[in-house]
Amino acid sequence: MSRFKKSSASAQPGISTASLPDIVFMLLFFFMVVTKLRDSEQKLTVKTPSATELTKLENKSLVNFIMIGRPVKKYQDIYGTKPRIQLGDKIADEEEIPLFLEKHKSSVPEGQQAGITTSLKIDGDVTMGIVSDVKTALRKAGQLKLNYSANKKAE
């Protein structure tokens, strides 16, 4: 008994930190994989409003994004300060929406095309005029499933 006590007291093994880099690397790789570097440059300031009745967008490949907002400072010389529409990575007008939708549609397998959703990322301070125009364009193009992108409201 006494021998055991003595040996443990005198050895004092420190915690091995040899596996620490492995753990950290694992975390590192996790975050590297999860991080999605923005593939399209955001040319508009879009701060979506918050809401409570939200649904999650499930299948990312079936979603196309239309952004509406005022151009960021860098692009105000070119595009002015009025609210504009951004499709993919370029600023466009609502006449270009059908083509944009068609392009996205062709990248989706035929069986899943009915499930295509358009996610509208719209700045909260934009007035409804331009939003209505986009909605009309979408209706004309036959894209009826919409998702008004919003943040979860803290209750």
Binding site: F31, V34, L54, T55, L57, R139, K145, N147, Y148
Partner: peptide, 19 residues
């Protein structure tokens, strides 16, 4: 990477427009 990651969660209000 922790700082730069934004786990993008796309949520919103689902709407169906009339044809």
């Amino acid at each position: 990477f922790l700082v730069t990651t934004q786990i993008s969660e796309d949520r919103g209000i689902l709407v169906k427009l009339p044809p």
